[in-house]
Amino acid sequence: MATTKSVIFTVVIIGFIMIATHIQVAKADCNPLLLISCLPSINDPSIPPPPQCCTNLKAQQPCFCQYLKDPDYKKYLTAPGAKKVADTCGVSIPTKCPML
């Protein structure tokens, strides 16, 4: 009976470690500097976004809510040209985000 409890305890601890590691990795992947390649197109919507912009925009999409909560980054995601860049790249910028 003690062995079964030990195994269950070990599995639970490993599960918590995996979840914590996943959360840290997900947070580490949010890097707004990767979106610098999109700035010319955001500032001037007549400039089509380069492929690197679209690639990075898609990779950073899970971070958009985090960026929208930061006034330094929000201004870029809500700029008039940002919607056009996002549409061109096939990405959507959320209008509502859950509380972090």
Rank of each mutant, 00 (worst) to 15 (best):
D72I: 08
C97D: 04
N31D: 15
C97Q: 06
L39D: 01
S41A: 15
F64L: 07
I17C: 13
L33W: 12
P45W: 03
K83N: 08
K83Q: 10
L33E: 12
Y73Q: 09
T10Q: 10
G90P: 02
T88L: 03
A20K: 09
M99G: 00
N43A: 14
I13N: 05
V91D: 11
I14M: 12
P32I: 13
P48W: 06
I42V: 15
N43S: 09
L57W: 07
T10D: 08
P40A: 08
T95F: 03
K84Q: 15
Y76N: 03
I47Y: 01
A26Q: 13
I19W: 14
T78D: 10
T3M: 09
P71Y: 07
G81M: 03
A26M: 05
Q66P: 02
T95Q: 04
C38S: 12
M18E: 00
I42W: 11
L39H: 05
H22F: 06
L34H: 09
C63D: 03
T21L: 14
A86K: 04
C63P: 08
K75Q: 13
L34F: 14
M18G: 14
F16I: 07
T3V: 13
L39N: 09
I93F: 08
A86M: 10
T4G: 03
V7S: 11
Q61V: 11
A82S: 05
I36Q: 14
P48L: 06
K5R: 09
K69N: 03
G81D: 07
I13R: 02
I36K: 15
V91P: 02
K75C: 04
I93Q: 06
